[in-house]
Nucleic acid binder design. Structure first.
Length: 484
DNA sequence: CGGCTTTGACCCGCGC
DNA sequence: GCGCGGGTCAAAGCCG
């Protein structure tokens, strides 16, 4: 099973081609009947006294015209594909360069990375979703124009004092204009407070994505390289909490906490925080993509009707998301919001079949351990094909749970693709696809910034103060090893 | 010897 | 202001 992650453009092309192929196949398979139908159609419009031969001749003409048109479209599609591929390549190169530049600039003067939020650390969180999705976009689908623009937006925001990418000056000008245009709106939101749909700004809150998985090892093999820098006994859990730092690239701000679940010691809770400043291995990309998709997902809803509460950090809230209407239609929106003000906006991305009927149950760890069996192909996951799988997202603004019939269907899908070695990426892709759909829907309603939170790596994003739980439990089976 | 883990100290935010 | 708890730092030790 392959999940088509192709871009809108690509999708449309595909659709076009599919249509054409269908037409073609119809022409081939049902040529006779079609000809008859056409003939009837022609007869309808043609004078009654037109000879039959003339009608047939007209049909052939129409067919040849259609076929010519199809050929032309296919060639056009090929050209477009090449353009998209080239754009992607350039885009990826730029991203890589940007990472290097950012590294050097961060070491020299962090303030060079201008941020709308005025907080560098938070702006890093803002970017958390980005690289991840970049990777996924790069490998799975080309970004749309709006996405590319969005990426440039993100880059530009940090490179305003940088003269490296001169070709982006125009875009930066646009961004500045946008910034100026939306600044009052954002400002008003910030000032209004949560009760009026505004954004509260508890300081120093960073987006977090938590992953729950069964793992015997001390830490999950998520494709990244980590170095332990601390350990603490957290209150309420005798199991020590370990602190890790990403060492894939020097200066990578991403950190993770690893702690055993109190209720089920076999469950490892890994909380990611920050943004990778480097490209990720495929396995890590999948993980990060999934997490970032979750973060993106919440971003899209983060300005919704629910009070953002203490967890939302205005300083890190991306301005291009800040103005999303509270009434933007969202398939993920659910009145049964999971919002724990005491813990900020805890969002739960639950990849288990353990759908809690109680929306207040943020961490149904104990119950989830009994029969949960998401058999994700992440390197850190254990797989057991005999189990059903469910995927559900839970959060402060929405509860997306695959239960009932949907759950069954989803479980089947997950089970089917679990055997695919590309499943890791597929899961991330699927979720990302949902996010993209969601974002597109939102953008239809909010034309300010047709941006897609595609950026992000380890799931963290500017959803500061919002904790995500990517819960992926599996029972038994062997770890699916990732081979980059 | 470099990289990693361990572990106590320290810092900081938050609640009382 | 004080205590608590979470998070980070950094020195010491371990390991390949």
């Amino acid at each position: 099973m392959e999940i088509d992650l192709s871009l809108k453009l690509d999708s449309q092309e595909e659709a076009k081609e599919d249509d054409h192929d269908q037409v073609q196949s119809q022409n081939q398979v049902h040529e006779h009947s079609r000809t008859e139908a056409d003939a009837e159609q022609v007869e309808d419009v043609a004078p009654v006294n037109v000879p039959l031969e003339e009608n047939l001749h007209t049909e052939e003409k129409q067919l040849s015209v259609l076929q010519t048109e199809m050929k032309r479209m296919k060639e056009e599609n090929k050209v477009l594909r090449k353009v998209v591929e080239q754009t992607l390549k350039d885009y990826y190169d730029l991203q890589t360069k940007f990472g290097v530049i950012r590294d050097s600039n961060q070491n020299k003067d962090p303030k060079n990375f201008l941020s709308l939020h005025g907080d560098d650390s938070e702006s890093q969180a803002t970017e958390a979703v980005a690289p991840n999705m970049f990777d996924m976009n790069y490998t799975k689908k080309p970004p749309s124009r709006s996405e590319e623009r969005e990426s440039q937006l993100g880059l530009s925001l940090r490179l305003q004092s940088d003269s490296v990418h001169q070709e982006r000056e125009e875009d930066q000008e646009e961004i500045k204009e946008d910034t100026a245009r939306f600044a009052p709106i954002i400002q008003s939101k910030l000032q209004r407070g949560p009760e009026l749909g505004g954004i509260t700004s508890p300081p120093n809150r960073k987006a977090r994505v938590s992953v729950r998985a069964r793992c015997d090892a001390a830490t999950m093999n998520d494709g990244c390289q980590w170095r332990k820098y601390g350990q603490k006994i957290a209150k309420g859990n005798p199991c020590p909490r370990a602190y890790y730092r990403c060492t894939v690239a020097p200066g990578c701000p991403v950190r993770k906490q690893v702690q055993r679940c109190l209720e089920d010691m076999s469950i490892l809770i890994t909380t990611y925080e920050g943004t990778h400043n480097h490209s990720l291995p495929v396995g890590a990309t999948a993980m990060a993509s999934t997490a970032s998709a979750a973060a993106s997902f919440m971003l899209l809803d983060s300005s919704s009707h629910i009070p953002l509460g203490s967890g939302t950090n205005s300083s890190s809230f991306p301005y291009h998301y800040a103005n999303i209407s509270p009434y933007s239609p969202s398939p993920f929106r659910n009145p049964n919001s999971i919002l724990d003000p005491s813990k900020g906006n805890n969002f739960v991305l639950d990849l288990t079949n353990n759908v809690s009927s109680n929306p207040q149950q943020l961490f149904p760890m104990a119950s989830s351990s009994s029969n949960s069996s998401s058999q994700l192909g992440f390197p850190w996951m254990q797989s057991n094909p005999s189990h059903h799988n469910d995927v559900h997202f839970r959060g402060p603004t929405q509860v997306v749970a695959a239960d009932g019939n949907n759950s069954k269907l989803l479980a089947e899908n997950v089970t089917a693709i679990a055997s695919d070695p590309k499943f890791r990426v597929a899961v991330a892709a699927a979720i990302s696809s949902l996010i993209n759909k969601e974002s597109q829907t939102s953008h239809l309603h909010h034309h300010h910034h047709p941006t897609v939170p595609k950026d992000g790596e380890n799931g963290s994003s500017s959803t500061a103060g919002k904790n995500w739980i990517l819960e992926s439990l599996s029972t038994g089976g062997n770890n699916v090893r990732h081979s980059p």
